[in-house]
Amino acid sequence: MDAIQDTPRIAGAGIPESAWQRSRWLAALPSIAAQDWLDGIARLVVVSPHPDDEALGCGGLIATARAIDLPVRVVSVTDGEACYPDAPAWPPAHLRVVRRQELERALALLGVDADAIDTLDIGDGRVAEREDALVAALAPLLQTRDRVLTTWRGDAHPDHEATARAVERAAAQCGAEVAQFPVWAWHWLSPDAPASPLPGAQRLVLTQAACRAKAAALACFASQLQDDAPGMPAPILPPHVLARFDRDFEVVLP
């Protein structure tokens, strides 16, 4: 989850979690146990635009999959190296190294070994212009009986939306199933909408163990968290943003 410039829907503090807790349409989404949602698949493949999107959007589901010994592979499309473009303390080369290390530590806490992580280095902020290259990189990594999970095609972040399009194209080549999860959408969607703006969405109910694993994984992304040191940029994941992902469920849609 990286900051994005000049995107009106991703501006300001966004919708607080307290408003989502009162959302009628979110509460009314069909619910299923996360473990049951995984029935019948051979492998879960999570394609994440930036390191931490996978933990934010489906960290609990990843932990659930590994708890039942379902294979999980995580594909990190970019290294999130451009998240602090105006911060001398965080040049892209340094961020690339740091964020890969954070991703590996976070996924280890979710039960995913380092050898089940693919890093593609497509270029933070450049996914849309390199979409064809992403399709070509993803295609050999996917298998017919996979369920491939990625960010929502309507998430309002260009990298997230381009990743979703590329995943749909690559998965179609082998017949793999695709599902998506919102990340930035919780920042700008209306909790008071008269009906769900996420067609076909479901709530995947998490166990307490999966929630704990997700929280521990998110804490690994220190580069994205609050830092009060003088001269440091505003964090990508301040407490009010993290609150939107501290739920006992995750949302997926076809």
Rank of each mutant, 00 (worst) to 15 (best):
M1A: 11
D2T: 14
A3H: 15
P16S: 08
P16M: 01
P16H: 04
R22S: 07
R22N: 14
W25F: 10
W25T: 02
A27Y: 01
I32D: 03
A34V: 15
G40T: 15
I41K: 05
L44T: 13
P49E: 13
D53S: 00
D53C: 01
D53K: 00
E54R: 02
L56I: 01
A63M: 09
T64V: 14
V72A: 02
V75H: 07
G80C: 03
Y84N: 01
P91H: 09
P92E: 13
A93Q: 12
A93Y: 05
A93G: 08
L95R: 08
R96T: 12
V98A: 05
R100K: 10
A108F: 12
D113L: 09
I117V: 15
I117C: 13
D118Q: 11
D124Q: 04
G125R: 04
V127Y: 09
E129D: 15
A133Q: 15
A136N: 14
A139S: 13
P140A: 04
Q143S: 15
R145I: 06
L149W: 08
W152H: 15
H157T: 09
D159G: 02
E161A: 03
A162I: 12
R169N: 09
A170V: 11
A171C: 10
G175M: 07
W184V: 01
A185M: 12
W186L: 00
W186E: 00
W186A: 00
H187N: 04
H187M: 07
W188Y: 09
L189I: 04
L189C: 05
L189P: 06
L189M: 15
S190T: 15
P191T: 03
P194T: 11
A201E: 11
L204A: 03
Q208Y: 04
C211G: 05
C211R: 15
S223D: 10
Q224T: 00
Q224D: 00
P230S: 11
M232H: 15
P235D: 06
P235F: 06
I236Y: 04
P238L: 03
H240E: 03
A243Y: 03
D246C: 00
D248P: 06
F249A: 07
E250L: 02
L253G: 13
